[in-house]
Amino acid sequence: MDRRSKHLSSEERGVILAEHNRGSSQRLIGQLLHRPASTICRELTRGRQEDGTYCPQTARRAYD
């Protein structure tokens, strides 16, 4: 993936969703995407729903 953009792509959010559901750590997800673990942490926080699950669409809306 192209790293010139600092924003997460839809594909990256999809990877975050899949890996988070698998129970992968934020550090591991960051390594897979070549992003800092802190970026993954902020994304998961931004997309957290009331039931505690991560929703990429919610995260995107909150970011925009």
Results as ranks from 00 to 15, higher is better:
Val15Met: 13
Glu43Trp: 01
Asn21Thr: 03
Lys6Thr: 13
Gln26Asn: 12
Ser24Pro: 02
Gln26Cys: 12
Leu17Ala: 09
Arg48Cys: 07
His7Phe: 14
Ile16Cys: 01
Tyr63Met: 06
His34Pro: 00
Leu17Asn: 10
His34Ile: 11
His20Ile: 00
Gly52Lys: 04
Gly52Ser: 07
Ser10Phe: 08
Arg46Asn: 06
Glu11Tyr: 04
Leu44Cys: 05
Thr39Gly: 10
Leu32Asn: 11
Arg13Phe: 14
Ile29His: 15
Pro36Cys: 09
Gly47His: 11
Leu17Glu: 14
Glu11Ser: 09
Ala59Glu: 15
Gln31Lys: 03
Arg60Gly: 02
His34Arg: 11
Lys6Gln: 13
Thr53Leu: 06
Glu12Phe: 14
Glu12Gln: 15
Thr53Ala: 03
Tyr63Thr: 03
Arg60Phe: 10
Gln31Thr: 14
Ile16His: 02
Arg42Val: 15
Pro36Asp: 11
Gly23His: 06
Arg60Ala: 14
Leu33Asn: 08
Ala37Lys: 05
Gln57Phe: 11
Ser5Ile: 07
Ser38Met: 10
Gln31Gly: 07
Ile40Glu: 02
His34Trp: 05
Glu43Phe: 08
Leu44Lys: 02
Ala59Tyr: 09
Ser24Glu: 12
Met1Glu: 02
Ile16Ala: 00
Ser9Trp: 01
Arg61Tyr: 03
Ala59Phe: 00
Ser10Ala: 09
Cys41Ser: 11
Thr45Lys: 15
Ser24Gly: 05
Ile29Tyr: 15
Tyr54Glu: 12
Gly52Gln: 06
Arg35Thr: 08
Thr39Ile: 01
Arg4Cys: 03
Cys41Leu: 12
Leu8His: 07
Gly52Leu: 04
Ile16Asp: 02
Gln49Ala: 08
Asp64Thr: 08
Glu12Ala: 14
Arg61Ser: 08
Pro36Gln: 14
Leu33Phe: 00
Arg35Val: 00
Cys41His: 14
Arg48Lys: 15
Ser25Asp: 07
Asn21Gly: 04
Glu50Pro: 03
Glu12Tyr: 02
Arg13Gln: 06
Pro56Trp: 12
Arg4Trp: 08
Gln31Ala: 15
Gln31Val: 09
Arg42Gly: 14
Glu43Ala: 13
Ile29Cys: 11
Arg60Val: 04
Gln31Ser: 10
Leu33Pro: 02
Thr45Asp: 09
Gly47Lys: 01
Arg61Glu: 03
Arg22Val: 00
Ile40Tyr: 01
Gly23Leu: 02
Gly52Asp: 07
Thr45Leu: 09
Ser10Lys: 13
Asp2Trp: 06
Ser38Lys: 13
Ser9Tyr: 07
Met1His: 10
Leu33Ile: 00
Leu17Tyr: 12
Gln26Leu: 10
Asp64Arg: 10
Ala18Lys: 11
Ser9Cys: 06
Arg46Trp: 04
Gly52Phe: 00
Ala18Ile: 14
Ala62Lys: 09
Ser25Glu: 09
Asp51Ala: 01
